[in-house]
Each structure stands twice: as structure tokens, then as C-alpha cells.
Nucleic acid binder design. Structure first.
Lengths: 330, 330
DNA sequence: CTGAAAGCGCTAACAC
DNA sequence: GTGTTAGCGCTTTCAG
């Protein structure tokens, strides 16, 4: 099942041709050869189960069939789902993922990216807000390898893009809250706001222009930290720009002996798996996270296959997942 | 910051020696050279910021400084935390991670492993119950690369090991339940029981030899599925062999309009981050998951540095994290 | 002590 | 059409 290591030379010998011929034929240039030779080579390849060594191939400047992935926090359900989507699609296309966890730390991310670049990855999929534009540009320009960024501070020119319809997501959340009769609403926004998150906010503000905006860290802790203020201000309903934030709010409420949704309605964003398992189940704006990862990977593979094709941008739809964390105001 | 790509040749030229000399000196054989030459070479290396190309080096049969990681489901909090620990420790030591998601699918895992092997990883860290022993042996024997398995069906001979004190964890859970006055208890065990999970069970059974054992899938769904039976049997307290299972039970209880812990006490295993955020917060046996990953990575790095050192086994302690899901029986 | 030379497995010009 | 040759960047005998 897993022979020692069959080289191109053996295939050549077996087929009675030179290694160059084998290389050519096996790399798409088959039509320039005598059909008979092609036959022999392919037969030999199959019989020996030969597969080109990615590493050797890479040394001569070809693809390594490896993609570098950078996420800030794999531990976060959003990112792990994303990575899963990327990884599965990539593996399916014969690529493999090199994963790095940036930890929301610019320096570490840069190091990771460099390490990845040095490893000769064919492209990067970067989903991390704290990576600086300059570093990104450097990678992109100097290394000339395609990059796809997700969840980024700014958009990189000259790259493909996948995103979800963030503006609409924010709008959906607002409309729902309004429909449920809420007027005194707040929105909790992260310090480190990425463009996509800003879009959500903008969508939300269309319906609630003067919603109270609470800044905090984009994490469970951040959500927890904001509860006191929410309670002080007698807010009725809060829009958490991520489910993580919402989970933190849940905890904060419980610590204050208050109930969701009786004392405060909360609506989240992302639709992470745990939404269904917290009590009450979290009403949230569902993004197709896994799909987002798959699409990013797909775009990357396509780009690598045809580097000159025009850049594309794909927007994935979002929808409201109504569960139990928003009550109708009587 | 990221020079074009400085090769060994440039360093050699700069130092006024041959590339062979540079290679030797930079690879530990410095003492066999004239101190002056060593000086010059190191100076040149530093000035140019030279670093050997991992790929080229690998081609000549050296290390690739890359470790393959296989997990069944990165989306699962346990595994993502584990991966984070591995990844961080590895990056710290100059290694990089190639991640594959097995999806609890033997065939896919095998493919991933092969792909990883072909990529020339220096070693494998495998945390996946469904990988077969034969495949594992093959990797280990044919490729002769070190493997560390976690959460495995069986233990591989001739490898280092890290594990947590599963037996004690089960015992701890049982003792706590007993202390809280429960007698009619159940334990929900996964179909696909790995050795470590069996140890937990054994520890638990020491205190509750005739606990009701419910078999199900090791997942949230599995937990949910088992609730009806739990209720039918009028169980007072249940030990879920993983937090995932416990979360499923929470949902199942809610769907039956029953309360945790009033109608059923539940204790989990793992201490995943969400334990604190569900309602009630989940009492569980805490394993140092992140640390487990770090240790596995550390062991791997050490093994690679000194392949002949004796195999070691590290056992990490577990402890009870008491929260709100177990009530004292009056 | 140090350097020349032979590859590792593969691809790409350029001859034949 | 197909083989020859020259590397990619590095390590490693093996002479000198």
C-alpha cells in the first residue's frame, strides 16, 4: 500500500524512456509525444504507483501543493469550523494545510507567516485581524504568492475574496429586535473592529441609529465585562457582534442573577455550534462558516490553477436563526 | 525584513570559504574547524541573515522541521485546544504543523496520513481513535518516523506517550457523586471507546460497580439521544465521559422540560471552555488539554533531537472542577 | 582543516 | 518526438 519510494527514474526505466520524457508526459505535455510512448509511461506509472515528490518538485520552482493558513485562535469555534472547511476542501484537491495560530499577536503572526513562506507554501489563507497591512503586502509582493484574507482589517487589493453579507446580517438582527418590540437596544462592538464587523454594525444602525454602543474585547470575557453597563443603562435587548460575546453576556447575566431573555434579550452573530446548547438557546445571525472556509479554499485552488484569471469576489448569504434568547416585549 | 533568499553560496563567498565549510560549521561540526574560520562563517551568516532552506535540506535526507498532526474533528473544543498546544510548542521550537482533520473516517485519515508522510514530515502526532493499528504500524515502521498517539484505541509500542490520569478522573467523578449523596447513577460511554476512556470508566466503576451503562455516540447528539433512557430509569446523576456528551444531555433535558441539576445531576469530563458558559455551569473532571498538547509536542521535539533516548511516558494530573450541575441529594 | 564533487528527485531548455 | 544537460540549495564523503 505504501511502497518504499518510487522515483521518476524507475518509471523511466520501466517504460524504456528517459526521465525527461516521463516528466513531460506526466505534466500535461503528453500531446507532444507519440501516443505509444504516452501509453507506456502511464502504464509504468500506474504499475509502480508512482507519484512525483512534492518536495523535489518544489525545489525546481513548482508548486508545493501546500497552503499556509493563519488564524488568530483555533480554539474559537468560528475559526475551527472555518479551518475545517478550508482543510477539507484543500485535502480534497490534493493540497495540504499548514496551520498557524496567531494568538491575536502581531509579532507571532508575522513569525508564523515568515515560517510558512519559508516552507514554500503556494498560497496563504489569512483570517486574522491583527496582521498588519505591510506584512501582508510584503508576503504578497515579494513572495508573489496568492493570498486570500478573511475577517480582515482592510481588504487587500489584487486578491480573490470571500465574505458573508455582513451588512445584511446586521440589518436582519436589527429588524428582528424591532419586530419583537424592542427600542432600548445596545450593540457591543469589539475594540479591534475588522471591516466585516463594521459592516454588521452599519447594517444594524440603519434601524437603530442611536443604539448604545459598548466597546469591549471580542471574546467571552469581553461580553461578560459589558453586562454591568447593560444593566445600568436598563437596556432591553443587545446585539452581540459575535456569539462569543453573547456567551460572555450570558455568564455575566447569570452572575448578576438576571435572566436571559427576561431581563435582557440577546442576539448573537455567527451561529457557532454551541448556540443550540446554551440556555436559552441563542438567537443569532447565522453565517455559513464551514462554507466560507470551503469557498476560500476553492478560490485558492482555482487561482493557483490559473493565476491570470480575473479576481473574483464571492458573497455568501446569512440568515436569522431564531431561538430562545429574544423575547417579545409586551 | 524579509530578504530575497540568501543561499549558502552567498554566505560562503562572503566568508571567503567553500559552501561545504559553511554547511559543516553551521551544522554542529564547528569544533573541527579553525576558530577563525568559524568566526568568519558565523559573522557572514549573521550579516546576511542566512537560514538553511528546510526544503533543500530535506531533500538530502535531513529533517523537514515539520510535524504532521491528525485529529478527528478540529471543530471539537477538546481537539482545537489540543492542537493549539501542539502548534504553539512546535512553532516555538522551530517546527511547523501540518494539520489534517480525519473526520472519524478511517479512509480519510489514512489518506491524510499518507499525504503527510509523502510531504516528508519528521514525525506524527495522532489523536484519533479510528485510525487502525496496521496503518499506524506501517507509518511507524516503513517510514521510521516517530509517532505520538493520544486518545488512541491501543497504545503503540516503541513511542513516547503522554496521557492524563484517566483512571483517577473517573474515580474523582464517582467519589464526588457519592459524596453528594447519589446512588442511582448512570454513566454514558461512547461506542468507540478508546483506552483512555475505558480507564475513566474503570475508575468510575470502582465506586459504582453497577452503574447503568448507556452506550452512545461520543458527541452532543449522542448525549441528547440518551436522555430519554436516563429519565425512564429515573437516574439521579449521570457521568458523561466527555463534556460534549454532557452538553447534549443538557439539551435533551431542556427538550423534555426537565432541569439540570434538579431533575438530573450531570458531571462531565474534559473541562472544555464552554463548561463555564452553559447553564448551569458544568461540573466536570478537568484535564489539562492545552498542556497535553504542549507535552506531546515537546516529547516529539526531544525525540527528534535524540532519536535513541529511551521512550518516556508522561502522565498529567486531572482535577475536579466543581460548578453547578450536580446537586446534593437531600 | 578545507574544498571539490557527487548526488537527493525533479523540471526545463536545448539539442539530436 | 525524445534524450541530454544543467541546475534548485543543501549535505556529505573523500581527497588534498
Amino acid at each position: 500500500m505504501c511502497a518504499k519510494k518510487v522515483t521518476i527514474r524507475e518509471v523511466a526505466k520501466r517504460a524504456g524512456v528517459s526521465i525527461a520524457t516521463v516528466s513531460q508526459i506526466l505534466n500535461g505535455k503528453a500531446m507532444k509525444f507519440d501516443p505509444l510512448t504516452v501509453q507506456k509511461v502511464q502504464a509504468a506509472r500506474d504499475e509502480l504507483g508512482y507519484e512525483a515528490d512534492h518536495l523535489a518538485r518544489q525545489m525546481v520552482g513548482k508548486q508545493s501543493k501546500t497552503i499556509g493558513i493563519l488564524v488568530p485562535e483555533i480554539t474559537n469555534s468560528f475559526f475551527s469550523t472555518l479551518v475545517k472547511g478550508i482543510e477539507e476542501e484543500l485535502l480534497h484537491s490534493g493540497y495540504i494545510s499548514m496551520l498557524c495560530n496567531g494568538g491575536f499577536n502581531g509579532a507571532k503572526e508575522e513569525k508564523a507567516l515568515l515560517e510558512l513562506a519559508q516552507r514554500g507554501v503556494d498560497g496563504f489563507i489569512i483570517a486574522s485581524p491583527s496582521i498588519s497591512d505591510e506584512v501582508l503586502k510584503e508576503i504578497l509582493q515579494i513572495k508573489k504568492r496568492p493570498v486570500i484574507v478573511l475577517d480582515q482589517k482592510t481588504t487587500v487589493e489584487r486578491s480573490d475574496e470571500v465574505a458573508t453579507d455582513d451588512f445584511n446580517g446586521g440589518l436582519l438582527a436589527a429588524q428582528y429586535l424591532k419586530k419583537m418590540g424592542h427600542t432600548k437596544v445596545a450593540v457591543v462592538v469589539p475594540d479591534l473592529a475588522t471591516v466585516n464587523i463594521m459592516h454588521r454594525l452599519q447594517g444594524f444602525l440603519v434601524e437603530f441609529p442611536q443604539a448604545l454602543q459598548l466597546k469591549t474585547e471580542l471574546s467571552k470575557n469581553g461580553g461578560q465585562a459589558v453586562v454591568a453597563e447593560l444593566l445600568d443603562q436598563k437596556i432591553e435587548a443587545v446585539f452581540a457582534l459575535s456569539d462569543e460575546l453573547a456567551f460572555g453576556i450570558y455568564l455575566g447575566m447569570r452572575q448578576n442573577d438576571k435572566s436571559v431573555p427576561d431581563d435582557l434579550s440577546v442576539i448573537g452573530y455567527d451561529d457557532v455550534e454551541m448556540c443550540r446548547y446554551v440556555t436559552p438557546a441563542l438567537t443569532t445571525v447565522a453565517q455559513p462558516i464551514y462554507e466560507l472556509g470551503k469557498q476560500a479554499a476553492d478560490l485558492m485552488v482555482k487561482r493557483l490553477a490559473d493565476p491570470t484569471s480575473p479576481y473574483v469576489k464571492r458573497i455568501l448569504p446569512v440568515e436569522l436563526a431564531i431561538r430562545g434568547s429574544v423575547k417579545v416585549k409586551i
